[in-house]
Design a binder for these strands. Structure first.
Lengths: 348, 348
DNA sequence: TTGGCAATCTGTAACGTTTCAGTATATTGA
DNA sequence: TCAATATACTGAAACGTTACAGATTGCCAA
């Protein structure tokens, strides 16, 4: 009875509790509304009041309560990165995360990682995010020409960016590496070294950049007059062991290739192992051009020819794109394509 | 005037809006409070009512609003993984994230990644998380014997787990790989192959497992009667180039080692490159035992001797530990140590 | 003097949830 | 039979924020 309980109205500047708008209002002698507006530079607040409020806010280290903002406005200040837990490249995960965090570092945004596994429909995590309103923006990878996730997000009006392009006649932000150019450069480089029977280690079938890579490869082949040694049983998201044994089989055949173009560093390790399993020597019997995202391949074999793909940059670009869309920019203006470096031989 | 604005009370089952407790209350004819309690199996709700509410909730796909819960209770349902954007191993980032997400997949928890860079105090991100109440639990890596972050979080009562142990006489959950055992096994294995002048490529100086590794190395050296070739200028978070050139320098000396123990796969690549730069041959002139977290080293050089460290497991254990602490378990009971595999030579 | 208007500021309600303090009804003990 | 008590439910308040609809003041034109 008559127990003193914490009641509305007793606002102490005593210290230990996190400051809220109410705290600021009490300290400045203003109303909560005024403080709120002063902090976001609303026009109807007097210049001096604005400065005063912002000063006090900085002094006591006021930080808006995310839950309050989110509940009231629906804005989560969260970007979600949707990742496949089985098929993403290790370096991709690490670099893209750092790229994203670099960009959102001086914004109120947090990055959440939303995983999905082989057994799930890739649409699941996206649907979850949209249905629960868990993010203001989404980044997806492993993009397909006809991508249900992109379609779904467009329909539901949530900003997103894709790593890789789609081909549905729909406009959305993306960042992509120019794999058409990569494959072409690789073929031309190999042709320049006299290689003319080339095999392609493709990206995962079904992803958009599979098509880009295959086309770049084919177009350059006919341009330089080289021929393709079919190697369709292999793609980069197979296991190291599979790639290795199939490469070894291929290299034991009479009509073996004298050059490889590989879309990923991990696969390249397996390719080289397979080549050597067959008793052949890299650089003498066969040349390999490979994409890589870190500087490791030249430590592995100096004879390798590499093209660098910068996933950290991809992460930054994707983050910038999503934030841009959230901020109201035209999605069509938030698309970027990264041009491959030249093919780089080892230099001590 | 008299404009009809959306008002309290008009609750439509019309469809497009996300269902809330109010929606459920309306549909079941119960009060919001009752619905809330029924959903969390509170004791004072009748068995049938409970079932009815839960059924309807499932039917219409009710999901509690995170912002509502968070605002009211302070519970964020967020775990934060704090990562250094420059020094973490690539494979570490990727695997630990997947390990964590695996465990939190069937919980309401989200994973946020909180980065910090070389230039920042490692305490900064942790302080941020605590001050803004952005997470219910935190996972940190690069743990030090006297770790200010762990101390800070203990003082502020936020549950956390560390990858690696501390040595401050304070109890908290951790997961660690037994690097003392690893270094010891490595030395014994090398000794078994007749190697007796060994160099250690250490973890970053200052981290707890630096000490564990160094001690395991030293103790096993004296146990087997081998000697150490000092290689203190190198640790695994140096650049590939630095490690490589310093290794080459070392290997050109008369008193060069005939065995290496390396704490990380990336460093091992550089070590091998350095060895070969000096004109020596792996397996003949020198043996290298290395930790690795993916199966790549044997593709790189068959002569390498490897010990596997499972970062995905680490992620899972750390997540389990944090959730356990959040759930009220005794932090002292949430510590785990992972025992290294034996040293594995290549087997075709 | 008055009405109008711009410039500043303010109280209230609402976002969705949980907790507190009840209320209503049925059940029990004596 | 009556009070005590258990059972099952409920409304109101509060978490921190922003949007809405005022309120107050001062100034200027008529």
């Amino acid at each position: 009875m008559d127990r003193r309980v914490t009641k509305k109205g007793d606002d102490d500047a005593s210290g230990k509790e996190r400051p809220t708008l109410k705290t600021l209002a009490f300290m400045t002698g203003l109303g909560v509304t005024t403080v709120s507006r002063a902090l976001k530079d609303a026009p109807e607040i007097g210049a001096e009041t604005r400065r005063r409020v912002q000063l006090v806010a900085k002094q006591i280290g006021y930080r808006p309560n995310r839950a309050g903002v989110r509940l009231r406005t629906g804005k989560t200040n969260v970007i979600s990165l949707v990742l496949n837990t089985e098929h993403e490249l290790m370096s991709f995960v690490s670099d893209i995360i750092y790229g994203v965090t670099e960009v959102i570092a001086d914004t109120p945004y947090h990055l959440i990682v939303t995983p999905y596994s082989r057994s799930q429909d890739p649409l699941d995590p996206v649907r979850y995010l949209v249905e629960t309103g868990s993010a203001d923006g989404v980044i997806i990878s492993r993009t397909q020409p006809n991508d249900p996730r992109a379609r779904y997000m467009l329909e539901h009006g949530i900003p997103f960016a894709t790593h890789g392009r789609t081909d549905m006649g729909l406009v959305h932000p993306y960042h992509d590496f120019d794999n058409y150019a990569f494959a072409g450069e690789a073929v031309r480089y190999l042709a320049g070294r006299g290689r003319n029977r080339l095999a392609l280690v493709t990206p995962p079938v079904g992803l958009t950049y599979y098509g880009h890579t295959v086309n770049g490869f084919a177009d350059a082949l006919s341009e330089v007059g080289a021929s393709e040694v079919p190697f369709n049983t292999v793609s980069i998201d197979q296991s190291i062991e599979q790639i290795r044994t199939r490469t070894a089989q291929l290299m034991r055949r009479k009509d073996r290739p004298d050059g490889f173009v590989s879309s990923a560093a991990a696969a390249t390790l397996a390719i080289v192992a397979g080549i050597e399993d067959a008793g052949l020597k890299l650089g003498r019997d066969v040349d390999v051009v490979s994409k890589q995202s870190s500087e490791l391949l030249h430590l592995f074999r100096r004879e390798l020819l590499v093209v660098n793909e910068n996933f950290r940059l991809a992460g930054s670009e994707l983050a910038r794109a999503v934030l841009g869309w959230i901020g109201g920019k035209d999605p069509g203006s938030l698309q970027s394509l990264s041009t491959p470096s030249e093919v780089l031989p080892y230099r001590g």
